[in-house]
Simulated assay, not measured.
Amino acid sequence: MEKTQLRRSLLKQRQSMSLTEWKQKSDRICTNLLSSPQFTQAKTVLAYFSFRQEPDLSPLLENTLTKIWGMPRCVGDSLLWHQWTPNNSVQIGAYGIPEPHPNAPILSYEQVDLILVPCVACDQQGYRLGYGGGYYDRLFAAPEWTNKFTIGIVFDFAYLSQLPIDPWDKPLHAVCTETKLVVSC
């Protein structure tokens, strides 16, 4: 199956979950992240605001105030990472996705220890299927970001044995679902 069809099918499946099921599975993902050494040792974590029933990481944001959180803002064809705390407001940005305000402090790549990556799907080799905009592909292709530890965040049904990949796709270091955290490289 090609990426476009696979993306459409998985997004439909994700959006068919009940609110209760989505919340329970999201909470389990947060629990798995909280027990991972990659997360517990990280001081600065890049994350995302849940959109279209992506796994919800808000319990992490609210319960781990010892971390510095970075949230993305789409600027042109790039992601800019802004420092964010739970008491900061957000605005609706590109594609209808919540984003930090443009005047929030910007985080540099030197500060970042861990990136929690939103995904439509991930495979057992660590490759991800995104939304098709290429924002994370461009981020991970930049030399300064290549050694940052990345964890793809997906529900179990979207953790597949293999995804179609393109030459520019870079594997993530780990994948976290509601039942497991698998380090792939």
Rank of each mutant, 00 (worst) to 15 (best):
D27I: 06
A47R: 03
A42P: 15
D123N: 13
L65F: 11
P118L: 10
Q83G: 01
P100S: 11
E110S: 11
I115M: 14
Q125H: 06
S18Y: 06
T20P: 12
I68W: 12
Q125D: 01
Q13E: 07
L80H: 14
V120P: 10
T31V: 12
Q83F: 02
N63E: 15
D123R: 15
Y135M: 01
G70S: 04
D113W: 08
F51P: 00
Q91Y: 01
L65Y: 08
R52D: 13
L79F: 03
L79Q: 12
T85H: 06
A142Q: 13
A141D: 06
K67M: 02
S50K: 07
T20E: 14
Q124E: 13
W22V: 00
A104V: 01
Y136E: 05
F140M: 15
C74F: 09
T44M: 07
F51C: 01
K25S: 07
Q15L: 10
L60K: 01
Y48D: 05
H101D: 01
L80W: 08
D77W: 03
R52I: 02
S18M: 01
S78Q: 12
T40V: 13
P86I: 12
W84N: 02
L34E: 12
K43A: 13
G70R: 14
Q15G: 14
V75R: 06
E99N: 03
F51M: 02
G70W: 15
Q111G: 01
C122I: 06
L107S: 00
D137Q: 01
N32G: 11
M17W: 14
V75S: 04
D123I: 13
P55N: 08
G76F: 14
Q53R: 14
Q15S: 11
E110F: 04
N63R: 15
Y136T: 04
C30E: 05
V117G: 05
D123G: 08
F51K: 02
C122E: 11
Q13W: 09
A42Q: 05
T64M: 11
S36N: 09
Y127G: 08
P100W: 04
Q83M: 14
G76Q: 15
I106Q: 09
S78G: 00
I68R: 13
G132Y: 02
N103F: 11
G133Q: 05
V117S: 03
I97C: 05
T66H: 12
G96M: 08
S50A: 12
D137V: 02
G132E: 05
Q53I: 03
G126K: 10
L60P: 00
Y131S: 07
Q24R: 13
Q41N: 05
R138M: 05
P100E: 11
P72S: 00
I115Y: 03
Q91P: 00
L114A: 03
L34A: 07
Q24T: 08
G130R: 07
E144Y: 10
Y109Q: 12
Y131V: 03
W22N: 04
R52C: 04
R28G: 00
W69L: 02
